[in-house]
Design a binder for these strands. Structure first.
Lengths: 152, 152
DNA sequence: CTCGGAATGTAGCCTAGGCTACACTCTGTT
DNA sequence: AACAGAGTGTAGCCTAGGCTACATTCCGAG
């Protein structure tokens, strides 16, 4: 999980073998995907809460185009990860961590879409591709995007 | 699967409900991920065949940082999808389709990395992020990237 | 106040992608 | 020629993310 953290966040540095530059890239890209879903959920829930005031499993499922059971299962994961809270039949809410994640995800999404548009990508494709791309944009890359947009 | 197809490739157009712009984006991004792995495998196999002349399961596994059994399973998928052929203990080879896919993937990868570098992303991050990003770049977006690189 | 339909939740099944453990080639030495 | 060790392949297990089918709870009309 975890969107590019703005804060330092000391990681264990996993540098045991000290070489697998080759393999680690693939692994990173692969595991980024596990978390992409959570990020999307958190963002949507945040949107729903902000606008309508309610985030119900059925709404979420409809938005993502999945069965409600699938949404409920994922909401369960969100709870396990400490990103959301939900009591049966009472709707879903974000924890503080979830809120922060949502904010970062939303900001990153906007930057990615803006960048694509700035590069001349058609609006429809920009929105569509950004959905997949955003989850693989690191801090460094995001910063570069922002710099470019701020005029380069 | 399928990298942005240069050829037309008439798709069934799945436009039954005629509206779910919302949901379809997520679905597209999600299913793009299923295929990303195959694309990476095909590209690596192509590389191995081009350079050393041999693509053995163990080499592939080592490069991706996974167990050899995992690589073998994925090679099985490659065969099912008609992208590769392999006889027991004889190494893996690409079909014509696999070769074409590899070429397209490689070209796309280069464009994505070049774009990131052009935008000022540090080399290491560019390589790393491109690995995840490339699988979500549509034809339209790829074309825009190329246009930008060719000077815009 | 009750009843029916919609929303929720649960259970079970499937595939992809990982892993470990175990079995079976292959091959390069002796 | 035979054998050890590397490379291959198979089986079985796990999680994430989908689905369908079924059960439960809520709530707004009557």
């Amino acid at each position: 999980m975890s969107v590019p953290s703005v804060a330092p966040s000391i990681q264990p540095a996993q540098a045991l073998p000290a070489e697998p530059t080759q393999a680690s890239r693939f692994g990173k890209a692969r595991s980024a995907q596990s978390g992409a879903l959570l990020e999307d959920y958190v963002e949507l829930i945040s949107d729903l809460l902000a606008s309508g005031g309610e985030a119900r499993p059925t709404d979420i499922a409809r938005r993502f185009g999945v069965a409600h059971a699938t949404a409920i299962k994922t909401i369960g994961r969100l709870k396990r990860e400490g990103l959301a809270v939900a009591k049966p039949y009472r709707g879903v809410f974000l924890t503080e961590a979830g809120d922060h994640l949502a904010a970062r995800v939303r900001a990153r999404h906007r930057v990615v879409v803006d960048l694509l548009l700035a590069l001349g990508v058609p609006c429809e494709a920009a929105e569509s591709d950004a959905e997949g791309i955003e989850h693989h944009v690191s801090d460094a890359t995001l910063a570069a995007f922002a710099r470019f947009l701020a005029q380069g």
